[in-house]
Design a protein around this nucleic acid. Structure first.
Lengths: 107, 107
DNA sequence: TTAGCAGTTAGCGCAATGCCTAAATACCAT
DNA sequence: ATGGTATTTAGGCATTGCGCTAACTGCTAA
């Protein structure tokens, strides 16, 4: 969780995740979309991977990165629930509980 | 948004928000729950306030801080939607869309 | 005004971050 | 093996972040 929030603290890294939300991309493809150097992007990718927000797979010369939505959503949702007690989560399991829509101090 | 994610990158600040999710607290009350010094907590609070995640109000000698849930939830939700296209948001307005539960690449 | 508590601001030291270039590694093709 | 492309690792440097103590401001109470 600490790693996830640290990873998300960087604008570049958030943009990378946004890119990967559309499609799997190679490290080079990702780097080409930013002004900063390839090694810097590689470093960002390794931070994202350490946080479990992306996964990588080498195919031939290329290393493809894909978004791991589950971890992103679970982590953010988990924290939001901690801070907005028993509010509607944004994950599937509890579409039922969502119906109750518990108003708390802001209702 | 940048400010919000930067604010959330610190464990202490996330804990402060969690504290404030239960009740409004004075700066001193908050500080007393951590090992770090009062000035440091004050600095954390000002970062949270700059990010719009908390609001402060002086009452007599005390400065009370309260959580601004809206901004926290809106920001996290907004980014999640950017990354998990047209996924179920975790805010109220669209309890309707939540029923549809759009499966995407992880369905 | 003086004393005292609550909180913030100022300034310092240290560790971590983020960028870079250069060099190394991994793979493909010849 | 050799050369070329893709990516990561290593090392350096400037900036930022986070903790501290000391000093300052705001309020209450005599």
């Amino acid at each position: 969780m600490q790693r996830v929030f640290e990873a998300l603290a960087s604008s570049v890294r958030r943009q990378i995740l946004a890119l990967l939300s559309h499609a799997e991309l190679s490290a080079g493809d990702i780097a080409s979309r930013f002004k900063i150097s390839k090694p810097s992007i590689s470093q960002h990718l390794s931070i994202l991977e350490a946080a479990g927000l992306v996964a990588s797979e080498r195919r031939g010369q290329f290393v493809f990165y894909r978004l791991v939505r589950e971890n992103l959503v679970n982590t953010l949702d988990g924290y939001v629930q901690q801070v907005c007690p028993v509010r509607r989560p944004l994950r599937k399991e509890s579409a039922t509980r969502a119906a109750k829509a518990t108003p708390l101090s802001e209702g």
